[in-house]
Design a protein around this nucleic acid. Structure first.
Lengths: 333, 333
DNA sequence: ACAGGAAATGTAACCTTTTTCAATTAAATC
DNA sequence: GATTTAATTGAAAAAGGTTACATTTCCTGT
């Protein structure tokens, strides 16, 4: 009682050719006589035939689908990357299976596995830390993987980033230049190389250059949400910070607002520079000074790189670093 | 030179059973003797067998994948819905193919077609207007469709919303109550029923109740972006509006900031109420008064509804309206 | 020990394409 | 006009599972 969908068989029969021929015209294979092609095309049109992508995937071992693991679509940083990914994917005729991981290691592995089970042609991973288990899954399957906005010191898989260390160093340099010596650094867990290894290093380097001694009280680990801004700001005050480098925009807004709500003038009494250049940085008052990461492009380039990998094209460099700048807006002098 | 992946055949052979039996244990069919199950499970484990979801999909005609058409992941309103969708999808073992449409009618149709070609078990559509072409595609395929945060006066497919008309009416009521008579209404195109039919109606009703005559100059159509806020605010001033009801948070922030940047005090000189209760409403200063839409829940309920539809369960009501409230924060008195 | 029914397992068709590889047809050469 | 060669087309074998149906095995009760 179903048999409603029409298959390549039906087309072949109607057109009086073999299904191989139908397959050829559908796939644009040139070895088909123009008249036959026309005939088949007409039948396809008349019957409104749509190839079954699943059957296609099974036969050809290609699904034209890539998996995208994202911590949270609701985070503007990641959704901006995702947008870049999807646009390029569409351009290359791929679709995206999007899965939220909440940066939960267990979910990440699980999701990766279902993506692989679904035979995605490639995977784009956004997150912060590549656990060993994840790395093991990556290398076990021969499915290409590209990290977007995510670093893996191991560099086994492709990745697209900016130079987080240098960007953070530049940010701190700027605050130092504005006369600060009690500069806080706030990021997520230092277990994540992007923070503990790159950003923190940049921070330390800048301090060192300025002969400012490193003070543990000024280095905070915090989740990236708006609502913890209050608590973080209290900690900052307690530690005597007069400026801060923040690794996430949403958190930065939280801190900024907490300061404003307490009557602290910004940037006069406190300076702040954030890291992602998401839309948010333009929406606050004062607008937030920020590292300008080319968010969309990171996603786009990552997807482009993945297409090459899936296509087994020769890659010159599978770790690409995109340029960044610093945009001094209203939260710094 | 490929044959690296191991199939159900391999497992069957190793375990000395038929593939049917392997299939049974993989799918949790109870008709398997515990000892056999154990034996098979051991082999699966040893060989690290992972069922090929594509083959499965072809054989069973179920892909456990649903398509999600979203205008733009980067818009917090929609990404919040998407998050609700994905969480419930995951809960029911579905994956999400996400596709951005930019509310472009052509893209919408095209994307829907590739989703159907990929044999998704269901579709969740977010957008604003259901064109006839889209409607035609919806009904042609027997794939269930649910609209999330999107209305279709036609009510042919499932949908999850709030009562936009009433919510807008309430918003205007509140501004009227605060003494305004020159209240602006700003939304996207009135061709979209959600705006032209529901919200605008609510606006008119409220005016009528208050015996305020409708003034065309106070009714604006604008795209939903932050950057047009300036232009929109200028128009509002010109029209002499003293308050506004805005249908999109990002646009509302743009208007709010344009006002603040011009030295207008809010809410003293101008009141504003927005419609989506995205994170943004808490991030501005003053915080934005808003209609509280249960964004996450709209997505979650839509996905839940879709699971029922896909499961051919009996549905009591396929058009569900979720409750909303009005949260008067800093942009209204 | 044996019939009868339930439980467990196996057989083989089917799902819809792609993709060899072989067969046929058309075009080109002399 | 007979061959050769090139261009089209078709037949059938994958691809990796699910599932209806048939068959075998296992218990029970007598």
């Amino acid at each position: 009682m179903d048999r409603q969908t029409i298959t390549i068989y039906d087309v072949a029969r109607e057109a009086g050719v073999s299904m191989a021929t139908v397959s050829r015209v559908v796939n644009g294979n040139p070895n088909v006589k123009p008249t036959t092609r026309k005939k088949v095309l007409d039948v396809i049109d008349r019957l409104d035939y749509r190839p079954n992508a699943v059957a296609r995937g099974l036969a050809s071992k290609k699904t034209t689908t890539v998996g995208v693991i994202i911590p949270d679509v609701t985070n503007l940083y990641f959704s901006s990357l995702a947008r870049g990914i999807d646009d390029i994917a569409t351009m290359y005729k791929y679709n995206i299976i999007l899965a939220n991981s909440d940066e939960n290691e267990q979910k990440e592995v699980q999701v990766l596995n279902t993506l692989l089970a679904k035979q995605v042609d490639g995977v784009i991973f956004m997150g912060n830390k590549i656990t060993d288990e994840l790395r093991a899954e990556f290398s076990r399957s021969r499915t290409p993987v590209v990290l977007a906005g995510t670093v893996d010191p191991d560099e086994q898989v492709g990745s697209v980033n900016i130079d987080y260390e240098a960007a953070t160093e530049d940010s701190v340099d700027m605050l130092v230049g504005n006369g600060h010596s009690k500069i806080a650094f706030i990021s997520e867990s230092h277990d994540e190389p992007i923070n503990g290894q790159y950003r923190l290093n940049g921070y330390k380097k800048a301090l060192e250059k300025a002969s400012i001694s490193y003070n543990d009280d000024l280095v905070l680990q915090s989740e990236y949400t708006y609502k913890v801004g209050e608590a973080v700001f209290e900690q900052l005050k307690k530690a005597g910070a007069t400026a801060a480098v923040v690794s996430d925009d949403e958190l930065a807004v939280g801190i900024l607002n907490a300061a404003l709500d307490r009557g602290v003038s910004i940037p006069e009494d406190f300076e702040l520079i954030t890291s992602n250049n998401s839309k948010l940085t333009a929406m606050t008052r004062p607008q937030m000074s920020t590292v300008v990461q080319p968010l969309y492009d990171i996603g786009a380039v990552a997807m482009r790189l993945l297409t090459k990998l899936m296509n087994k094209e020769e890659i010159d460099e599978k770790t690409v670093k995109l340029p960044y700048t610093i945009d001094a807006k209203g939260t710094t002098k």
